[in-house]
Design a protein around this nucleic acid. Sequence first.
DNA 1: CGGTCTCTTGACGGAGTTCAAAGCTAGTGG
DNA 2: CCACTAGCTTTGAACTCCGTCAAGAGACCG
Lengths: 183, 183
Amino acid sequence: MERFIQIDAPLIELLQEVMEERFISKKDFLLQEGQRCLHQYFVVQGCFRMFYINPKGMEQIITFGIEDWWITDYDSLLNQQASEHNIQALEDAVVLSITREKLEYLFKTHRALETYFRIVNERVRIADQRRLQFMFDLSGEELYDTFYQANPGFVQRIPQYMLASYLGFTPEFLSKIRSKKRK
Amino acid sequence: MERFIQIDAPLIELLQEVMEERFISKKDFLLQEGQRCLHQYFVVQGCFRMFYINPKGMEQIITFGIEDWWITDYDSLLNQQASEHNIQALEDAVVLSITREKLEYLFKTHRALETYFRIVNERVRIADQRRLQFMFDLSGEELYDTFYQANPGFVQRIPQYMLASYLGFTPEFLSKIRSKKRK
DNA sequence: CGGTCTCTTGACGGAGTTCAAAGCTAGTGG
DNA sequence: CCACTAGCTTTGAACTCCGTCAAGAGACCG
């Protein structure tokens, strides 16, 4: 938070009080399809994936969430409807959670917090746009290379088929990319 | 704005004073590659496209902007660097423009305005995510159908090859989709 | 009218998918 | 601590969607 706003001690203490610490075991869910999403989660430790079941019945990964990132399903959260998404821990994890109601209340009383989230969402828009451009411009192999370079080490943390899903192709194809590289 | 915040008369008047009205002729640019983007634009009348030149040398359209939408290049605006994008009018148009500096000043003095943009960006994140899901799930033909249904009339306002670019395929392929439908 | 911009059509090629089978790895219980 | 199983990765052959290239036909604007 200090990257984006000047945060004072009282606000830090308040957040520590209000946000609930949760320990999640590998493979457990923060959110499952059909539930209403009520919280925003800050990942303290661990790794999550957010995915849905696409029309072909396959799991499609939208995004990952790791340490120091926020994760939630905004569509379900803001429009107060059942989620089509799942958020699942890929490792044992620790998150801080806060309900949308509490957060909006804090926005009113603590202006800096709202500024913080305004800025975060501006940054996410930039990142989302870059990702879209990558998907337009790059071949499967180039997508893999680019992701690999940009996120050193992360590829080791997750099964390859999840990376394939995130990048928008099949595990078989990713396997062929990798086997080609071995030569 | 009234959709998202309670806006009072003084703020409305202030915005009318501070924001500059600009008339843009068809084919003229609000932003060109290489320039620093300094403004956020609110489209009063007309239609814009935001595009860049991809590695193959083709124009790739990222998004359109029409009446009552904001348009800008956040990456250039916030990171204060030369833009890789172009924003061009597809029709004679009217916009209200405001520099980022002025807007951030207004955020400080007029809280409701910052709340408004926080909410707008949350909504845009939802829309961006839906678009990503469409691109994962749908074939070219389905993308066209879905866009056509969701934006009745808009397809008539723009050349077909721009729609093809936005949807992520070639004008030739779009032409084949349409010729198939005629039967 | 004349040229530029836009759309269409067809033949061919290639990136990525699908399906099926087999090999590998890691977690789990006995 | 081993054996077994479920989960993950690899490989190959056939196939599909969509891109590329090239040529022509409209359509719009000065």
